[in-house]
Every structure is written in C-alpha cells, then in structure tokens.
Design a protein around this nucleic acid. Structure first.
Length: 440
DNA sequence: TCTGGGGTCCTAGGACCC
DNA sequence: TCTGGGGTCCTAGGACCC
C-alpha cells in the first residue's frame, strides 16, 4: 500500500491570528515581530509583495513598512498558541493520524484514503478550518512527507486557487520539483542552498538526479533520506506521538547590553524559574543545567565572549529553588567580567519523567522534599492566580539587581528588560481582553 | 540605537577499554 | 619494550527546522 500524506500549513499564521480579531486588517500590509521586536517573523501577502524578506531585522525595514502604511505587531504567543490548538482540533476530525509539526503546521496520515477524492476531502477540510477558526490554510498532498510539504509550498508560490495541491503522479511531481529551487527543499538550509548552485544543482529536480553515493557522501544520511523522499520513497513516518522532550531552554536578548554580574544573575534566576515552570507543566525533572550569557554577535567592534557552564543537579529536580541555586552557581563559574552581554539563558538537560525519579543516596530527607514540594505548589498557585501577574512571588536568592531592590528607583526597568511596543490583546485567553462588539 | 527563541538530529573526534 | 585495531560512549559543534 502506498502511503499518502497531507501537510496543512496555516497561511501567514501569526498575521492571520491578528486578522481574525481585526478584520479591518484584511487586505492591508501586516507584520508580526519576534521577541524584543527584533525581526519580522510573519508577513501578510501585501508585505511579501513589497519585498520584505522573512527574518529581516525590524529596524532595517521599518521605514519601508511605514511608507506602505504597514501595521506592526509584537508577537502574542498566548493568542497564537490558543488559535493553533483550535486549528489542530479541527484537523483531528479529518484523520485519526495527526502529527502536530509546529505551531502552524500539521501532517495528516491519509493511508487508506487512496480511493477517495483526496482533493475534494482537502478542500472540505480547508473550508471547515476557515469557518470554525478564521484561519486560512494551504494543503499539500503527496506520497512522502517531503513531497507533501513541497506541494503545500507550491500552493503559495504558484497561487494555486482552491489552496490544495495534490502531487500523486509522476508528471505533476516532476513539474513541481523542476519549479522548486534547491534551497527551498525541506531540509536544505542556507549552507547547502548556497553550495548547490556551484556544483550545477539548481532545482529540486536536479537534486533528485544526482548520484546516490555522491549525495550520501556529501550530505550524510539526512541528504540521502531527503533525496529518497523527493523520489517518492517514504523515509519518514507520521509521528503522532509527541516525543519526549530532551531539553528546555529559557533565554532572552536584552534591550541593552549588560555587564554587571548582579543584574545578569537576576536575569539567569528568572530564566531558571521560567524553565522550571515549563518542566513542572510537563511533569519532567532535569538532571543537568547550563547557564550562559553571550555578547552581541552582530557587533564586530565589541570583544566577543560566550560564557557558559554546566552543572549536574545532585538529584534531578524541577523546583525553582533547586534550579535557581544550580543556575546561579553555574553562572558564577561561567561569568567573565569586562564583556557587554546581550543575551542570557538557562538550558535544562537530561530531562526525565518526574515519576521515574529515583531517590539518590544524597537526596534530601523525605520530610524536606515534601516541604519543598508544598512550597513550590504555593508559589505556583500565587503566581498562577492572576494571569499576567507573573513573578508576583520570586525566589530571593536571585541576587536582585540594584535598581529592583525595594524602595530603590521604583519603576525603573531592569537592565535586561524586553522590548514589546506593539502588543495586541490576548483575545482568547484573558477575560479582560476579550474583543468588544458594539451593536449598532 | 535597533538583528528572536526554542528545539532536534547528525557527525567527528576524543577518551577509554580490551 | 612493542604502541594495532575495533568497539562504545560522550561531547561539542554544525546544520537544520519553525
């Protein structure tokens, strides 16, 4: 039985989310920025038409966007995450096999649908998603995941009306491969995209025609799989079981650079707490922790440094108290003075289910452990009680930076605060920010 | 002035063992 | 003193994804 995959891709997802609640944005140029208002991470069709590339630094394209009257949003992940789960739940009505691939993409397994009119089925899916969530999607269908993905991409590139592209026959597959630059293949990144043309490989079709051993030798196993997938031979299965996470990172770039150890420790403590929160949500514990800070890699005039140190947690934990202690000890080891740090973070590694945890010889006594858990529960409760009131209660060991000490310069932002100047409301996850409808 | 954040997989090379 | 070769495990770094 030949396999059949569909890739459902939300069009300009973040922009579409904003438009659901602001229909007046329809037809206008709209962009969504990354954290810190750094880069353009979502563009409406109108913005793409202006020629603004994905990932452009905002400050470089700001003028051009203004000239075209573009509307600009800081990213609102609470909104996008909620809209995403709405879309995914609609998709699950259309196939028992769904793999949520990213916030805005999902693969559907269509094994056993071969005798159906899959094109009509996909159209119906598209209509339902749009109708029930407000999000427009493109659908690509093919015998492998890579071809399904390529099919969906061609929907946008070739402006295929109806938003569905089925690649099931030799001729249509070859035509799509020939129209796709090699750099646009799923799995071919910037490095390979640059190198291929110099060896005479320009399109995905050229790539499929390279000798197998050459691809294997030059690109390794990933390249070999990619080539087989494009030739119609499935190497990747649908992965409907979310895989266990192996690491968890919390990090941020600062609006301004920071040199001061105390301020950096304050930031690192915050990241440790944030990462721990995510661990507890997933009932995981970490066995190792890395704390790091890096200088601004975009500024060649400043001395560069990557400060980083890893410590093992004596007993795997997800408690803010343990993680903060480990993070501060690691960071103190890693810190080198005299550098202007632009970004810092905490990585939790060696993750394992909290239930698997074996008490070690050095584990704190049962009594202390219980106390620690109760304390963490109380902290989570306080911090969770008012959404948006995050960090209401924090661990004091964080080496609070001078300007955040009680009484001192109240209202002055921390040195490492985030820039977010264009936020939209959390329409779907905060009562106070619901969209208001005025009756005429 | 202003360039994101959170992940995974693969590979090469070193350490170590027999 | 001779100092080969194969296996495994770990880690750092590269490349890629969205």
């Amino acid at each position: 039985m030949t396999k059949l995959f569909a890739l459902i891709d939300c069009n300009n997802f973040y922009v579409s989310c904003e438009r659901v609640f602001r229909p007046d944005l329809e037809g206008k140029p709209v962009v969504v920025l990354s954290n810190n208002d750094g880069c353009v991470v979502a563009r409406s069709a109108e913005v793409k038409a202006i020629g603004i590339p994905m990932g452009s630094p905002y400050f470089k394209v700001r003028k051009l966007l203004d000239q075209h009257g573009a509307l600009v949003f800081s990213s609102n992940y609470e909104l996008y995450g909620d809209m995403s789960s709405r879309v995914m739940s609609v998709l699950s009505r259309f196939s028992p096999d769904v793999e949520i691939y990213s916030i805005d993409e999902a693969f559907l397994g269509l094994d056993g649908f071969e005798d159906w009119d899959v094109s009509a089925y996909a159209s119906e899916l598209r209509t339902k998603v749009k109708c029930w969530t407000g999000i427009p999607v493109s659908v690509g269908i093919g015998p492998t995941k890579t071809l399904a993905k390529l099919a969906a991409e061609r929907v946008k590139k070739d402006k295929i009306s109806g938003g569905v592209n089925v690649l099931c026959h030799h001729a249509s597959i070859e035509a799509a491969l020939a129209a796709t630059p090699v750099g646009d293949i799923w799995g071919v990144g910037r490095q390979w995209g640059k190198r291929f043309p110099s060896v005479g490989v320009y399109t995905a079709l050229d790539f499929t025609r390279q000798p197998k051993h050459w691809v294997r030798k030059k690109m390794g196993i990933s390249g070999a799989r990619m080539q087989m997938e494009l030739q119609g031979q499935a190497c990747f299965d649908l992965d409907s079981q979310p895989t266990d996470r192996k690491s968890c990172v919390s990090s941020r770039s600062f609006a301004k650079t920071v040199e001061d150890l105390d301020q950096l420790k304050d930031a690192v403590a915050t990241f440790a707490a944030r990462a721990g929160e995510r661990l507890r949500q997933g009932s995981l514990v970490a066995g190792q922790l890395t704390a790091f800070a890096v200088t601004d890699r975009h500024n060649p005039h400043q001395p560069q440094h990557h400060a980083s140190a890893t410590v093992a947690l004596p007993n795997p934990s997800n408690l803010t108290m343990d993680l903060t202690r480990a993070a501060l000890s690691a960071f103190t080891k890693a810190y080198r003075p005299g550098f202007r740090y632009k970004k810092a973070g905490v990585m939790l590694l060696d993750l394992a289910p909290a239930s698997d945890m074996q008490p070690t010889l050095f584990a704190p006594s049962q009594m202390n452990q219980e106390k620690a858990l109760r304390l963490q529960g109380a902290l989570d409760c306080l911090n969770g009680a008012q959404k948006g009131g995050k960090d209401l209660v924090r661990i004091g060991a964080g080496g609070i930076a001078p300007e955040t000490k009680p009484g001192a310069n109240r209202g002055v932002k921390k040195g490492w605060h985030l820039r977010r100047n264009h936020t939209s409301p959390r329409y779907t996850t905060a009562w106070a920010e619901l969209r208001t409808v005025h009756a005429c």
